[in-house]
Design a protein around this nucleic acid. Structure first.
Lengths: 309, 309
DNA sequence: ACACACTGTTTACACGATAAACAGTCCTAG
DNA sequence: CTAGGACTGTTTATCGTGTAAACAGTGTGT
């Protein structure tokens, strides 16, 4: 470990590592960072991250809003600490599990559980990889899980990233459900049904043939969990790769992803305009169809009641 | 397609489908939804989604903030339209590409490009799957790409979800870079270097042995793109599965993910407390070590200069 | 021509984060 | 053992949000 004297830690990160001098003089502290963070988490669990305001947290603890700033230098730091606390430590029993495949599955399950418990986690704004103790512990346990494999160090990191991303994505969708549930008071089945109805009503066979066929096959009402399928495919892919390496197969060159150049970015607005005309044309096409004229009529009626429709 | 008379579309979704009656009487409109959305996107591209306020958009167009509300019923809707516009249509040439694997790669690349262009996309709050035309078009093209395979309808949706999630995750990390770049003015290499230094300074071999080893191997300074590795593994996994199906292999039963019950959630706070003691103990351990005492001393010095460290 | 549906604007409000100045508390250096 | 001052939680105030409501001007269908 390098000498840390040269580092100046981002404010919240230092708090997360518990590396902050406790004051020696002055009155006894009545609160603590932990209590504040716990209160904030409870609010977020119940009503989403949007409900976490300094005032709300303070009120819940019976203090005035400004008092929190003696413990947490800014709301950003509070959110980082919420994230870190809710992340917690990875399951302790991973080491007992036999085989990298099962170990990764246990870890993945652990991550998804976190998002299941704390759907607001997804809404915490990201600023670089979180160099906090608990996040590092998860990273560590993932790396350890694949230590018996012929994967290179870079590849192991890539695997950890792959799991993290997949869990996060699962969490994102779960959070979407949680948010609509909060907003509408509907239960998961009702939300699914409503979304299926929306799709069903909007997707025409001419414009979106493949999607339309899927809808007709009832996929949006299926109880099967698509994320589990995805996760199993990921494990399959790793297994195939590891198998190839073990069999002495050559490691393919790690391609470097071409970045966008400025011209691409500049072209984007024109591109959007071009797409707009395409879509405009499709819109006209749509409008020519009977059932869509119906939709339009409905929408106009609605718009007249409710100016911005 | 079912009769849409029963549906009441979420406000913004109707706008996205272009299903809103243009007013007939009254003065000519000076603005348009498109111009507003474009202005908002330009602001977000330059300074992030946080910089997009109604006032900022209006100012950029030379109007007063409230004028926007004649076109866009709320900021949420504006964001939905930004998302939809920036999403655009999938690449038109996917159909020309031979083989599902290459087709998926082209689509994936297209998605990542979007996040490369518009890193703020990740920050747009999600509320259910976006039933908008462009998003549907991407879904459609993904489903079409795997039409020649023996995958079931549910599985195809799962594949589309898998790609989307992976692209989003890539985008999340890209957005993190963009955000720190904006905040600090550093270029990507400098950001990587700074993060590597942070890790290097904080991760001890005792607490995070596997991670520490990875750091020493220099993985955080490697130029290889871990997301490409991950994506290739996903494709490998799909290939393996498709191969198995084609060879007449049985389809494994789609496991249903066990949801958390209330007891689990209630136990979470106690769990966090338990973890806190573990971490507290580890902290003490850390503090007993020489180099960490060093860190602490540094931190105290810093804290005395800068009260909340 | 005139009512009124519409335009963009003004004014106003309820929150949000947080800076600055406050009076009370209590450790520690003299 | 007694200040001085570091520290506590509080009060007050500022600035930036999103958006409701009332406004005067405009142009179209009756």
């Amino acid at each position: 470990m390098a000498d840390s004297s040269e580092l100046d830690l981002p404010r919240g990160v230092a708090l997360a590592w518990g590396v902050s001098a406790d004051p020696q003089r002055g009155p006894k502290r009545e609160m603590s960072v932990e209590k504040i963070v716990d209160a904030a988490i409870e609010i977020a669990d119940a009503d989403g991250l949007g409900a976490v305001s300094m005032a709300a947290v303070a009120t819940r603890l019976g203090y005035t809003p400004m008092s929190l700033y003696r413990y947490v230098s800014a709301k950003d730091d509070l959110m980082l600490l919420m994230q870190e606390t809710a992340t917690g430590l990875p399951p302790a029993d991973v080491r007992d599990v036999e085989g990298w495949r099962e170990r990764l599955r246990v870890i993945f399950r652990g991550m998804v559980d976190i998002y299941l418990r704390h759907s607001w986690m997804i809404d915490v704004p990201i600023t670089g990889s979180p160099t906090t103790p608990n996040s590092s512990a998860w990273m560590d346990v993932m790396l350890e899980a694949v230590e018996g494999t012929p994967l290179s160090d870079e590849e192991r990191i890539a695997v950890a990233l792959l799991l993290t991303g997949q869990a996060r994505w699962y969490g994102t969708v779960l959070a979407g459900y949680a948010a609509t549930a909060r907003a509408t008071g509907l239960n998961p089945e009702q939300i699914t049904a409503r979304e299926a109805a929306l799709y069903d009503g909007l997707i025409s066979a001419d414009e979106f043939p493949a999607l339309r066929r899927a809808i007709d096959a009832g996929v949006f009402l299926s109880p099967a969990d698509p994320f589990l399928f995805g996760f199993d495919r990921i494990l399959d892919g790793l297994e195939a790769y590891i198998g190839r390496l073990a069999a002495g197969g050559a490691r393919p060159a790690g391609a470097d992803w071409a970045t966008l150049d400025d011209a691409d970015v500049a072209a984007d607005k024109k591109y959007r305009e071009a797409q707009r005309s395409v879509r405009e044309a499709e819109k006209t096409l749509r409008a020519a169809q009977k059932h869509v004229r119906q939709t339009l009529r409905e929408a106009r009626e609605r718009a007249s009641r409710h100016p911005l429709g």
